[in-house]
């Protein structure tokens, strides 16, 4: 666990890197999430003070966007495309298989903390669906066997 002084130091360093940028809040939130894996609640007042916003405003922005998370994920994040072109190729069955195999629903993390399952609406791989993203790595034409293999390979 990080103490709040450490959090403050890293957040301030990120804020310094974004000084002078027009409309810097999204890039700042991305940088914080990249660094911490999520947006620690302790970071919000620091960002707010720096950008001359209220804490509620920063929280409002953060919560508007699906990408930003308040809590850490599991060790791995599995994103499955739920959009139309992947549905045409069996994405619904694939998602059902994944939920069964992992024993969790969308947005949940397995009890051992290993995998978080997230829906995604299109990865631009619509001519080779169903598509997935595993810890940032793109995978096309995923079927149940390939998915089990991917999940089995996660440590």
């Amino acid at each position: 666990m990080l103490d709040s002084a450490q959090t403050a130091e890293r957040v301030t360093e990120i804020l310094d890197r974004h000084r002078g940028m027009e409309g810097a809040l999204l890039p700042i939130l991305h940088a914080i999430q990249e660094d911490f894996g999520h947006i620690p609640q302790d970071a919000l007042p620091i960002i707010a003070r720096d950008l001359n916003l209220s804490r509620a405003e920063v929280h409002g922005v953060m919560s508007f966007y699906h990408d930003f998370r308040e809590n850490p994920t599991g060790n791995h994040v599995l994103k499955l495309c739920r959009a139309e072109a992947c549905k045409a190729m069996g994405a619904d069955d694939l998602a059902a298989h994944a939920r069964r195999e992992l024993g969790i629903d969308w947005h949940e993390t397995t009890r051992d903390g290993k995998v978080t399952l997230e829906p995604v609406f299109c990865l631009g791989l619509c001519a080779c669906g169903p598509a997935a993203m595993v810890d940032g790595k793109l995978v096309g034409r995923v079927d149940a066997a390939k998915l089990s293999q991917i999940v089995g390979g996660l440590k």
Binding site: L26, P27, L29, H30, F64, Y65, H66, D67, F68, V120, F121
Partner: peptide, 8 residues
């Protein structure tokens, strides 16, 4: 270059 945050 700016990056979105998952909002359609």
């Amino acid at each position: 270059i700016r990056v979105g945050a998952g909002a359609y």
